[in-house]
């Protein structure tokens, strides 16, 4: 595949007079791991929300494999092959760990009325197959022991791992991870990093928002620095880290 997987061009968004995104352009190529850094309020999560369709930009376009994402509903964006985690870990606490992952599979016949009532055998077969795949995903994040427990009993770090597993259930090609290691203990941080590295190895394209510079330096091939809604700098990790504009923005 030649061109970029995700192409954002001149994206702008205001909220009641506050500029959230200002003329942001960014291209992400397949199998890249891109880090998105910047002070709080820089517009990083807003960018994720715009890609996913939770907010609608005033101008600009977002192309995913030549499909324009602007104007699409989040569920449509997800079905195209993009998945995300959230800064405040979102999960369904009333469902078990396994059920959370099962939920995220696409094209389940059991979610449609006709197969559910009239093609019960097929529905059951797919559900069983999904269960196995889900257990495999849980094994990848080392959560199989908790499969039948409610998601709310997991520790914070385990919940973050679960939310990554949920992203993988949907066969997404592009993963948007919003602060995947923020607030977790060092051991868990290593585990999560390991999962991210494995994903990158498997050919997934990943954009990570993080404040932890060590993690960014270790994982990302390219870094994008945002501040006040604008893209300020972009390039290989060392170059960006030493960029005077980046240093200035952090010190301000």
């Amino acid at each position: 595949m030649s061109g970029p997987l995700l192409k954002i061009a001149h994206l702008s968004k205001r909220f009641d007079g506050i500029v959230a995104l200002s003329n942001v352009s960014l291209s992400v190529h397949p199998c890249e791991v891109v880090g998105l850094i910047g002070p709080n309020g820089a517009g990083k999560t807003t960018l994720f929300n715009a890609i996913f369709g939770f907010i609608r930009p005033e101008s600009g376009e977002i192309l995913f494999r030549d499909q324009n994402l602007v104007g699409k509903r989040p569920s449509q964006v997800a079905r195209l092959g993009i998945a995300r985690t959230f800064q405040d870990v979102r999960l369904i606490h009333h469902l078990t760990v396994l059920e959370n992952v099962l939920l995220c599979f696409q094209d389940q016949p059991g979610e449609r009325l006709a197969p559910l009532f009239f093609q019960q055998k097929w529905t059951r077969t797919v559900e069983t197959a999904n269960r196995e795949k889900a257990m495999a995903l849980l094994a990848d994040v080392e959560l199989t022991g908790h499969a039948d427990e409610c998601a709310e009993v997991l520790s914070y770090g385990q919940q973050k791992l679960l939310s990554i597993a949920c992203c993988l259930a949907g066969h997404a090609e592009l993963l948007l991870l919003d602060e995947p290691v923020a607030g977790v203990a060092p051991q868990m941080l290593e585990r999560i990093l390991g999962v991210i590295h494995a994903l990158s190895h498997d050919g997934k394209t990943i954009i990570i928002i993080e404040h932890n510079m060590d993690v960014i330096m270790q994982t990302c091939g390219r870094i994008v620095f945002m501040a006040a809604g604008e893209k300020v700098a972009e390039g290989p990790p060392d170059a960006v880290r030493n960029d005077p504009r980046v240093v200035a923005a952090y010190l301000e």
Binding site: F52, F54, R73, P74, S75, Q76, A78, R79, A83, R84, F86, R90, L91, I92, H93, H94, L95, E99, L102, L103, C104, Q106, Q108, P109, G110, E111, R112, L113, L116, T123, E127, C166, A169, G170
Partner: peptide, 25 residues
């Protein structure tokens, strides 16, 4: 007691999560 019901439980608790994982609310 089906995948459909599972989606309902998800919508009940967190619509945003369900939408982000491809469910047409």
């Amino acid at each position: 007691h089906s995948p459909f019901g599972r989606v309902l439980k998800a919508i009940r608790e967190d619509e945003v999560f369900a939408e982000a994982h491809g469910k047409a609310i």
